[in-house]
Simulated scan of single mutants.
Amino acid sequence: MDKFNKLIIISELDTVHNITLLAQSININVQQCSKAVALNSGMLKPGVLLAYPYANKDINKNGVSAELQDLLNKVPLFLFQAERTILEPSQAIIAGIRGVIYRDEQLDRVMTAINTMMTGQLYYARKVMSELIDTLVQQKLAQNQQTLVVPNTNLLTKQEKRIIQLVAEGSRNKEIADNLNISAHTVKAHLSSIFRKTKARNRVELLRCMQWPKTQESELIKLA
Results as ranks from 00 to 15, higher is better:
60 N>W: 09
78 F>T: 11
136 L>E: 13
147 T>N: 10
72 L>G: 04
1 M>V: 08
2 D>R: 14
208 R>S: 09
207 L>G: 06
4 F>P: 01
12 E>R: 14
197 K>W: 09
218 S>Q: 15
130 S>G: 00
117 M>R: 04
213 P>F: 03
86 I>M: 09
5 N>I: 08
116 T>D: 06
18 N>G: 09
133 I>G: 00
92 A>M: 07
50 L>S: 05
127 K>I: 12
188 K>H: 09
3 K>T: 12
201 R>A: 13
2 D>A: 14
184 A>H: 08
15 T>K: 15
35 K>V: 01
216 Q>T: 14
142 A>F: 04
180 L>M: 11
147 T>C: 00
207 L>P: 06
54 Y>I: 07
126 R>Y: 04
90 S>V: 14
54 Y>C: 04
62 N>C: 03
70 D>M: 11
128 V>H: 01
20 T>M: 05
19 I>L: 07
69 Q>Y: 05
212 W>S: 03
111 M>H: 00
55 A>Q: 13
157 T>K: 10
221 I>E: 08
130 S>D: 12
213 P>E: 04
98 R>E: 13
1 M>K: 11
106 Q>S: 07
7 L>I: 06
57 K>D: 10
204 V>K: 13
12 E>H: 13
166 L>I: 01
165 Q>M: 11
195 F>R: 14
138 Q>V: 10
86 I>E: 14
108 D>W: 04
117 M>W: 08
3 K>Y: 02
83 E>C: 03
171 S>P: 00
219 E>N: 08
59 I>W: 03
171 S>E: 12
26 I>P: 02
13 L>N: 15
4 F>E: 06
156 L>D: 04
44 L>T: 05
150 V>A: 01
94 I>L: 11
197 K>F: 10
21 L>T: 14
30 V>K: 08
21 L>E: 15
122 L>M: 13
126 R>W: 00
9 I>C: 13
201 R>I: 09
112 T>G: 07
107 L>M: 11
180 L>N: 05
